[in-house]
Design a protein around this nucleic acid. Structure first.
Length: 533
DNA sequence: GATGCCGGGCG
DNA sequence: CGCCCGGCATC
């Protein structure tokens, strides 16, 4: 237990690319935890997730002790074991850390800060250092100081969870403030920005902004593409969380911090092993943020963006102010779009459609966007405004459709008409292939193929009596193919071999000697194209 | 067996 | 897709 203690979330696998990890963790946290939050009373962290939090206590020797803390179990200080540890750390280990400039480690055990090797590499904090090399300790201190009032020394925020809070918003206990705090924290938690707020006191505004930008930039670059929205979305509780009581507020910071830790852990489990995206949305769930402001349907991919939008456009706040009171949170919701599902859904339509009339109906739905939105998976459990999906989504759909133009044709053309009207006979497309209702009609769109085919499958052959070899060759093939697709029909070929034509063929005419004079078909032992019957 | 073609394989 | 050929049905 000497000098070096590092808080590490063991589950995370600790090595996970910092930024990435964080982002995710943060996001899900907010979303998922929000609800649970309510359950917890006061002291408990506003946002907590269930599940054990596993901390790995890494010591100099490299030996590590794991401390398991149930976030739920977190008591007054809300940090239980972690808290203690951090405390110790501060006492003993802090100095060490400072030297390396990695004090940050103590802040939220978030992997982000986790140095490559059990936090022993100062490099792990690079971003922190870069921005505010010497400040970290200071920040931490500030933070502590700020909280001191509410937090028992012992309860000092986990070093890991130190999330500086801007002065201007002291834990006054206003609901909105809290919300804001939550938002900020979450957003911050995901990124190195964590330090930022506290630094605010010392750092001139401009500088701050610059930081942010830099950070964001670095972030995006360092993390997977998802990051942009992932990170931010966390901060976007679609539904404003119920204001915490003042009492709770007291611990808000702490608790939230604790939460974050736990959250991180939780998340970490998901993201361990560098899984870039949470499993459930493994395939491409895209989170978008939609402005709920009346008549405003702005949809942005990042929470920060939407917040800014709301702040500036709707709230008329100064865009310069980095901090909002969190009010924006109430005006936008997070919507999750499953790109894959969209795609798949559409694509799936095509295949099925031929046989089933089902799919087409889906499209007809009158209201342009509405239907599309339905496809979208509003993941946010919160029953937010059933906001229409952003236009983007619909567009996507459209796009997809176009891609599958060949299939899409039918649906598109099949305006609501038939269905709604309940008109049976295929409209126009094909000589109703016996399809009873409009639905099927739509699918006939590829009628061309069906056209002569309607009747007996086998008949193809039959018809061919007078079969013109030549055309047949071309048409023939196509027809058959289509048949195959559409009808499992009995193979006409076997029984229905085309009778031998009366006319003499190339072979007979030219004889084997002049084979080169044969038509190609004959040469290839195909139906003679020259002397058709 | 000669013919006519289909189905398939190959490059 | 062009070229061939195996193989089958028909004559």
């Amino acid at each position: 237990m000497d000098s070096r203690y590092i808080l590490e979330k063991s589950p995370v696998g600790a090595r996970v690319g910092g930024a990435d990890f964080n982002c995710r963790a943060g996001r899900s946290v907010l979303r998922d935890t929000r609800v649970p939050t309510v359950e917890k009373n006061g002291p408990t962290p506003a946002y907590t997730t269930n599940g054990p939090v596993l901390y790995k206590f890494v010591m100099d020797g490299g030996s590590a002790a794991e401390v398991k803390g149930e976030q739920t179990s977190s008591k007054g200080n809300g940090l239980s074991p972690a808290g203690r540890i951090s405390h110790d750390m501060e006492k003993t280990g802090l100095g060490d850390q400072k030297d390396t400039g990695s004090t940050g480690i103590l802040k939220r055990a978030s992997p982000t800060h986790c140095p490559g090797i059990n936090g022993q590499l100062p490099g792990g904090f690079m971003h922190l250092d870069i921005r505010n090399p010497g400040k970290q300790a200071e920040l931490a201190n500030n933070f502590r100081a700020a909280q001191g009032r509410n937090v028992p020394t012992e309860g000092q925020p986990l070093p890991s969870s130190h999330i500086p809070v801007p002065r201007n918003r002291k834990p006054s206990g206003h609901a909105d403030k809290e919300v804001m705090a939550a938002t900020v924290l979450t957003s911050l938690s995901t990124s190195p920005l964590v330090l930022y707020p506290s630094s605010e006191t010392t750092v001139p505004e401009p500088a701050n902004r610059a930081w942010k930008e830099v950070l964001s930039a670095s972030y995006s670059s360092s993390t997977s593409g998802n990051w942009s929205w992932d990170a931010s979305d966390q901060s976007v509780p679609s539904t404003p969380s119920p204001p915490l009581s003042n009492d709770t507020n007291k611990n808000f910071l702490l608790s939230s911090q604790g939460d974050y830790v736990s959250e991180d852990v939780t998340e970490s489990t998901h993201f361990m092993f560098e899984d870039p995206i949470p499993r459930k949305r493994k395939n491409s769930m895209k989170v978008m943020f939609k402005c709920l402001w009346k008549n405003c349907e702005k949809v942005l991919s990042t929470s920060s963006g939407i917040q800014r939008h709301i702040r500036i456009v709707h709230l008329g706040r100064n865009s310069d102010s980095d901090y909002s009171d969190g009010e924006e949170d109430f005006y936008y919701s997070e919507i999750e779009v499953n790109v894959d599902s969209l795609t798949e859904g559409l694509s799936s339509l095509t295949p099925t459609s031929p046989t089933t009339a089902g799919p087409p109906p889906v499209f007809p739905p009158p209201l342009t966007d509405v239907p599309h939105s339905e496809h979208i998976n509003m993941n946010s459990s919160q029953s937010h405004a059933p906001t229409l999906l952003s236009q983007s989504a619909p567009s996507t759909l459209c796009h997809i459709r176009t891609d599958h133009a060949y299939q899409a044709t039918a649906p598109v053309s099949i305006p609501v008409g038939p269905e709604l009207a309940g008109l049976g006979s295929g409209n126009g497309t094909g000589p109703g292939i016996g399809t009873g209702n409009g639905i099927s009609v739509s699918w006939q769109s590829p009628p061309v193929i069906f056209k002569g085919v309607p009747g007996p499958v086998t008949h193809v052959r039959t018809v061919s009596i007078g079969e013109k070899r030549q055309p047949a060759a071309g048409t023939h093939a196509t027809v058959n193919k289509n048949h195959a697709l559409i009808m499992p029909a009995p193979k006409s070929t076997p029984g229905t071999r085309k009778p031998r034509g009366e006319a003499k063929k190339c072979r007979k005419v030219y004889g084997m000697e002049k084979r080169d004079m044969w038509c190609t078909a004959c040469r290839w032992k195909k139906a003679c194209q020259r002397f058709t019957d």
